[in-house]
Amino acid sequence: MYGEYLRVTPDELARSIADPVWGRQLADSVIEAEFVEEPAEPRNYGTDKSWHGLQYLLQRAGFPLDIVTGEQSFVEKLENWDELEGSEVDWGAGPPGYLTPEQVKLAAELLARTPFEKLIEGVEPAELIREHIYPQVWDRPGQLEELGHHYDYLPAYFAAAARAGDAVICWIA
């Protein structure tokens, strides 16, 4: 399972919620285009398997927003998600979530003030194992540092989204 982000305009977010098949097609086209040629400020970012560890560390530190799976879910806005799931729409491990442009701005401000070193202060690998944080690799050397590799990109990603007035769709693929 991999954590994914997609920066979208407010109009693209509204259309994606109303038509998650269209939203997934948009995500796929952005991911494909950025795989070929990475822009200076990408619309897509993936945290690989680090998503759960990042979510745990952020929650542990009292971060007020869920920037990993989103503050709102497509299901909250789309009553027929169960009918769509498993059909033409496949966002991965359940429906995506999202952050509004206002939430993205707040996330960008907070991430800019939250260095990774602060998140892992006092954290031992055994804690992540005990909490069943995916993937169960925390007893291997360098795994906490791998979380840092993915976290360190998030402040710039969210700052770019905030500057553009974008929302962010989040999902676990």
Rank of each mutant, 00 (worst) to 15 (best):
Y45D: 12
Q143A: 10
E109A: 05
K77A: 11
W138E: 11
E124F: 09
P39T: 10
D48H: 10
Y45Q: 09
E4R: 11
A61T: 02
E71F: 01
V8L: 02
D152F: 01
G46N: 13
G53K: 00
A107S: 02
L57A: 05
F158A: 02
E88M: 10
I133E: 06
W81L: 06
P95K: 00
Y45F: 15
G94E: 06
W91S: 11
M1V: 13
E88V: 06
F63Q: 05
L119A: 06
G70M: 06
T9K: 01
D11Q: 12
K77T: 00
E32L: 14
Y151G: 06
Y98I: 02
A159N: 09
A93K: 07
F35R: 08
E85S: 12
L54H: 01
P96D: 04
T9I: 04
Q103I: 07
E88G: 15
G53F: 02
W81T: 06
S50E: 14
Y56N: 01
A18S: 12
E117V: 07
T114V: 10
E71D: 07
D139E: 12
Y157F: 15
P95G: 07
E127G: 06
L99K: 02
L106S: 09
Y2F: 15
V168S: 06
T114K: 05
F74T: 07
A156I: 02
Y2H: 14
H149P: 00
D66I: 04
Q72N: 12
L110S: 02
Q59T: 05
P135L: 08
G53D: 07
L99N: 04
G165F: 08
A40R: 08
Y134T: 10
F63R: 02
A159R: 10
I133K: 00
R163W: 04
S87Y: 04
P10F: 08
E117H: 01
C170H: 00
L26P: 11
Y45P: 13
S16A: 14
G92R: 05
R43G: 12
G23S: 08
T69C: 07
L128W: 01
P141Q: 11
L99V: 06
Q72H: 14
R140L: 14
P39D: 13
A27H: 14
D152G: 15
D66W: 02
P95L: 00
G97A: 09
V75S: 11
D19L: 03
E117D: 14
Q143P: 08
G70N: 07
L58H: 03
A159C: 09
E102Y: 00
I172L: 10
R15T: 05
E76W: 00
E117M: 03
L13A: 01
A112N: 07
G86W: 09
L111N: 05
V21S: 11
T114S: 12
G86C: 12
D19K: 00
T47F: 04
A160R: 04
E41F: 10
Y134N: 11
V36K: 04
H52M: 14
I169C: 07
E34M: 06
V168Y: 05
